[in-house]
């Protein structure tokens, strides 16, 4: 093949590739980018569903954010929910995946059972755990009552309520982590383990020194994906705590909901959303770069 022909072929395929990419970009722009621009535009106004707008434009909403104690509080709540939640999900998901692979490889049916919570929609997850954390209804409280033990109420203290949401969130999403880690484990050859066993390393040592480092890219990916999702915490808070006790579980996204839907403060709610979005965009930038690096080798 001459270089000229190759050049033509590659120009053709470039066009073909572009045509393949275009519909998705158009769809994303229509369904996504336009509303997103609307969100930014709205955050610069002082539009309120009830009072309307004075026509004033500016960054006032963003300056107000930093003086708003409730907003600052919501960021702390979000940090607690996200960091704890992601930590538990990643640790549990990894532990289950590794356990299924190394400790109980014969539990084929259990694999599906471990996945089951992932099939439950989040709103149902929230209702299920609300029933478990309601002392009058809870089977846990009833069980320990048999032995005269009073189980403390989770939802009435700040730490308890945060723990309750983290537990429910962990239950619902560790299977996602488990799936990804199982996949990654499939790609890691058993020979390495055997080799290290010959070197006299214990199984636990071999896990920490051999398996874990190989899992690192997968762990990083799954952690970032889960982190981004936890920024959007909504159904669990909406159903389980309504932001209480007090305001101790009003995470940022939920606070945005309160401002937008309860207080009709649409522009301020949009500003809160923009804040979250920008933060997530920074995180996603790194995910995207990581992915390009991992897939392009």
């Amino acid at each position: 093949m001459t270089t000229k022909a190759a050049g033509r072929a590659s120009a053709e395929s470039t066009r073909a590739y572009r045509n393949m990419l275009l519909p998705a970009l158009i769809a994303v722009t229509a369904f996504g980018i336009v509303p997103l621009m609307g969100m930014f535009a709205l955050s610069l106004t002082d539009y309120n569903l009830i009072k309307g707008s004075s026509g004033h434009f500016g960054l006032d909403n963003f300056f107000r954010l930093w003086q708003d104690r409730r907003f600052v509080n919501s960021v702390y709540v979000l940090a607690a929910l996200s960091l704890l939640g992601v930590a538990f999900q990643v640790v549990l998901g990894t532990a289950v995946a590794v356990g299924l692979q190394k400790i109980v490889p014969k539990w084929k049916f259990a694999r599906s059972l471990f996945l089951a919570p992932y099939a439950v929609p989040h709103i149902a997850v929230a209702l299920v755990w609300l029933s478990i954390f309601t002392p009058t209804l809870s089977p846990i409280n009833a069980f320990f009552d048999l032995f005269g033990i009073t189980v403390p109420t989770m939802l009435t203290s700040q730490n308890g309520a945060i723990a309750a949401i983290v537990i429910a969130d962990t239950w619902a999403t560790y299977p996602f982590v488990m799936l990804l880690i199982l996949a990654a484990l499939n790609g890691i050859s058993d020979d390495l383990d055997e080799a290290s066993a010959l070197d006299g390393a214990s199984r636990i040592q071999s896990f920490f020194y051999i398996t874990l480092p190989l899992l690192f890219p997968a762990l990083l990916m799954v952690t970032l994906f889960r982190f981004i999702d936890t920024l959007k915490h909504f159904p669990l808070i909406f159903v389980m705590t309504k932001g209480g006790p007090g305001r101790s579980t009003q995470a940022t996204n939920f606070y945005g909901y309160v401002q937008t839907f309860q207080n009709s403060n649409v522009s301020y709610g949009a500003a809160i959303a923009v804040f979250l979005f920008v933060f997530a965009a920074i995180v996603s930038f790194y995910v995207a770069r990581l992915n390009v690096r991992l897939t392009n080798g």
């Binding site: 945005g256 959303a273 923009v274 997530a280």
Partner: peptide
């Protein structure tokens, strides 16, 4: 850009 869409908090996104 594709990933950004996944970032958008529905609360802000849904009004526009």
């Amino acid at each position: 850009v594709l990933l950004l869409l996944r970032m958008a908090p529905p609360v802000g996104f849904v009004i526009p």
